[in-house]
Write a protein that binds this DNA or RNA. Structure first.
Length: 858
DNA sequence: CATATTCGGGG
DNA sequence: GTGTACGAATATG
């Protein structure tokens, strides 16, 4: 019955498709093969080999707002060759020009197909390399696969020094050489053709960038699935079905589920089975026509899950604009692609790019939404979902709400970070789909590839495995961190260097080709034996200069506006991120422009400049209490803001180029704690309170998962009491009160519960921790737990090892939790380093007696 | 203490 | 994607 229904639906789709093609034919007839000129915003690209040719497909929005696929087969791939002797060029070019390879390839049907790889033509060109103009042979080949095939042969010849630019990703090469920036307006000449596709298809004769005008508000659709997942176990798409899916877009909200219950919610739609639910997913995407499909961890969860389920039912997920299937790539399934639709996993982008400006330590949808949108997920007990699904469908409505809310959050997050993503796309010139998944090193490299073409710089090759292995072993001295003296301080001014490393690269001309130049013996790097050219600006310093000055211009524009401009702010942020990443890129083992000497020199100069400020600050009468990389913490003492300003300008006159020391702010008080069991102050662990009363906590592990809530809360509370109210006595009393409540078992179970995730199956553990012991017992009771299960347990009173006293919350009954454990292993360790600053020992914190001589401590 | 593994995110 | 994330944190030898 259902089968025949599907056949009917399929037939219907096929008829619709036929009509569409027919419609295109009519268009074609009307056009009469007339060449047309159109403009569109490409937002996704793909390439294929057709008849031994490399063909590029550009998917985008036409200037009329419709979906369009532009086919371009005019680009000829190439690589570069450097010969050993320049005199031999003509002979060599002729020899290379004759290269041709044939290869038989078996196709699906077993028919052998012949593939040709051949050199189409050769050219003599020049490029800059290591600061010099060099002559190269540009070898054009018939398709992109031929690059690796033919370059490998050429590389072996005696007359060849080296091959270059044979390892540039094809689409990257295409975009750079054609001068096309994704998402901005591109002009194409050609004609509309009939081809199976969602939207129009246009065959290009020529293509060029038209303007910097960028696509406005991509049409987005947020989505999220819920799956049947008994016992909160590791996720198993092979075993359990998808039970719900939600979508949220502009004027669109929907939840689809296949268990019926009574509801008045209009957004809930019922189907009869998981099969129908998957078909419905396809239908929604077909009708909504999103340009961007956005999910949260959808690369690693939603889309792979949907794909696995669809495969089980033999449903084709031909969602691409060209009806190609959804493809899940990457060893760890971390890349889900739909051709012609930007699938954006917003989690990936936020964690990689946005995270550096965020406070949250966890990147789950709820924490991220709370920080960026000011709202959380709906709080439901997901562990019950499978039970409700089986036994109490009446209660499913709240789960539908929960499901929809996730899509709403994802949609709003995507909207929020879209300016950042699109600005990065424009600057680095890479596709949104890619940018959303790139780390800093890749973003930087993408930008450098673009800039190389503009500056006519030869692109260095990727390192091979051996290089990477060696590079990984190299370590070098990093930034300077001052060892603070533990204690509480008042009136602290923080000064820092604005963009320290980028301005060092620029001011000291730190670049691979300016390193140890032969034209001038420049100033030697402190602590090192290198120097950098003082006559000719290097490629990367030029790029950094450009990034810094562009950002300054944008900041001026922002200052002139009275309203907050999200796009300008995003552009400024993107430029800053790229400039800041160049230092790390020099030292990154996978980098094309890897330069360990450069990275070393940057940190060496950094140490030099920060020491310089420390020394001069002390001479000027400030007491330095802390310093890390690019910042110094000064005690104001008898000095005031004017003295600070004077000091800063005194430093700044002497700084070269774009380097600048800035005033970060004044903090009314701050606390530095000592290292565990040691006298010395801990680096990177302090808490400060600024003039406006905001608390800044750095390095304290207040947010770690396997701490009980009571310990986390106490730590934060007492930092506030000490810094805000400057009342150590109150803080101590507070801790004692909590300890007393623990002793009397008055603190609620939810606050002493500890959550730890099982990393593997219970049987596989050799070391039995408390959470494993609990899991074992759960198994004994027939509760199915395994790798991935979150075990929540409480340590109970009694004798013996801690693991034998761990109980799951449901087991507790009238028993009491072990107060001593929570006092001595949770609360006291969380606060002892803070109190030891005031000479209060842990015995004093935990002692049952009311502290008699508290005043002794002050 | 060095090396191997696993985790995140998702239900 | 001219392919095979990544960097931190934890577990094991």
């Amino acid at each position: 019955m259902i089968q025949s229904l599907f056949r009917r639906i399929n037939l219907f789709i096929n008829i619709a498709l036929f009509l569409k093609i027919f419609d295109n034919f009519i268009n074609l007839a009307l056009l009469g093969h007339l060449m047309a000129k159109i403009q569109f915003y490409p937002y996704d690209l793909d390439y294929k080999e057709v008849d031994n040719n490399s063909v590029v497909y550009l998917f985008g929005r036409s200037s009329k707002g419709k979906r369009i696929t532009v086919i371009d087969d005019t680009f000829i791939p190439y690589f570069l060759v450097k010969s050993k002797q320049e005199g031999d060029f003509d002979n060599l070019m002729t020899k290379i020009g004759k290269l041709k390879l044939e290869e038989d390839q078996k196709s699906f049907s077993g028919v052998e197909k012949q593939i040709n790889y051949e050199v189409l033509k050769t050219e003599n060109i020049t490029k800059k390399s290591s600061g010099k103009e060099i002559n190269l042979i540009k070898v054009y080949v018939n398709n992109y696969k031929a690059i690796s095939k033919i370059s490998k042969i050429v590389q072996e010849w005696d007359s060849i020094k080296q091959i270059y630019e044979h390892d540039i990703p094809f689409l990257r090469r295409y975009l750079v050489d054609k001068g096309i920036t994704p998402i901005t307006l591109v002009e194409v000449e050609g004609e509309f053709i009939a081809q199976k596709s969602r939207g129009e298809v246009f065959k290009a004769k020529s293509i060029k960038q038209f303007s910097e005008d960028a696509i406005k508000e991509p049409r987005m659709l947020g989505f999220d699935i819920e799956t049947y997942n008994p016992d909160g176990k590791a996720i198993e798409p092979d075993k359990y079905p998808i039970i719900m899916v939600s979508f949220y877009g502009k004027d669109y909200e929907k939840v689809i589920t296949w268990k019926k219950f009574k509801t008045n919610e209009k957004y809930i739609e019922f189907v009869d089975s998981e099969v129908e639910l998957i078909e419905k997913i396809k239908e929604v995407i077909e009708h909504y026509k999103p340009e961007a499909l956005v999910g949260y961890f959808s690369d690693g969860f939603d889309l792979p899950y949907i794909e696995t389920r669809a495969k089980k039912y033999k449903i084709k997920l031909d969602l691409g604009l060209d009806y190609s299937n959804l493809s899940i790539n990457g060893r760890d399934k971390t890349d889900a692609k739909i051709k012609g639709i930007m699938h954006l996993d917003i989690f990936s982008f936020i964690r990689r790019v946005i995270s550096r400006t965020m406070k949250t330590e966890r990147y789950d949808l709820s924490s991220v939404s709370e920080e960026l949108l000011g709202e959380k997920k709906i709080d439901v007990d997901l562990e019950r979902l499978s039970d409700v699904w089986d036994n109490k469908p009446k209660e499913l409505e709240i789960y539908c709400k929960y499901n929809l809310k996730d899509s709403i959050l994802v949609y709003n997050l995507a909207k929020k970070v879209m300016p950042n993503m699109l600005e990065l796309v424009k600057i680095v010139g890479m596709l949104p789909y890619k940018v959303a998944r790139m780390g800093f090193s890749q973003l930087v490299e993408s930008y450098l590839l673009n800039q190389s073409y503009i500056f006519n710089e030869l692109i260095p090759s990727r390192p091979n495995h051996e290089d990477i292995k060696q590079r990984r072993m190299i370590t070098y001295k990093g930034a300077f961190v001052y060892e603070p003296k533990a204690g509480m301080y008042e009136n602290i001014a923080i000064l820092d260097y604005r963009s320290l490393y980028p301005t060092i690269i620029s001011s000291h001309n730190i670049s691979p080709e300016t390193l140890d130049c032969t034209c001038c013996g420049g100033k030697k790097t402190p602590d090192e034996k290198y120097w950098f050219c003082e006559k000719k600006k290097g490629f990367i310093p030029l790029v950094v200069d450009d990034l810094i000055t562009r950002r300054m211009r944008i900041k001026e524009m922002i200052a002139k506006k009275d309203k907050k401009d999200a796009v300008l702010a995003a552009r400024s942020e993107a430029l800053k991120v790229l400039a800041n990443s160049l230092y790390g890129y020099y030292g990154f083992f996978g980098a094309r422009w890897y330069c360990m000497e450069c990275a070393k020199s940057i940190t060496a100069w950094g140490r030099y400049y920060i020491h310089n400020v420390i020394d001069k600050a002390e001479k000027a009468g400030f007491k330095v209490i802390y310093s890390d990389t690019d910042s110094v913490f000064l005690l104001m003492g008898n000095l005031n803001k004017k003295d600070i300003d004077k000091f800063i300008s005194q430093i700044n006159v002497e700084l070269p180029g774009l380097m600048e020391l800035e005033y970060e702010g004044l903090y009314t008080s701050g606390i530095f704690v000592s290292m565990k069991g040691k006298e010395t102050g801990a680096k990177k662990k302090y808490a400060m309170i600024s003039e406006d009363g905001t608390l800044k906590i750095t390095g304290f592990e207040t947010v770690r998962r396997n701490w009980s809530l009571v310990a986390k809360n106490v730590q934060k509370k007492i930092l506030e009491m000490i810094l805000k109210e400057k009342d150590v006595e109150k803080a101590l009393k507070y801790v004692k009160k909590i300890i007393d409540e623990l002793r009397k078992n008055k603190v609620g179970i939810e606050k002493v519960m500890i959550s730890t995730q099982l990393k593997k199956n219970v049987e596989d553990y050799i070391q039995i921790g408390p959470h494993v012991a609990v899991a074992k017992r759960m198994k004994g009771k027939g509760i199915d737990v395994g790798a991935g299960s979150m075990i929540r347990y409480v340590i109970m009173k009694g004798k013996g090892m801690i693991r034998d006293r761990a109980r799951m919350v449901e087991e507790i009954g009238n028993e009491k939790y072990d107060s001593d454990y929570y006092i001595n292993h949770q609360v006291v360790p969380a606060v002892e380093s803070i109190f030891s600053v005031f000479n209060i020992k842990k015995e004093d914190i935990a002692s049952e007696k009311e502290q008699s001589g508290l005043s002794d401590f002050f």
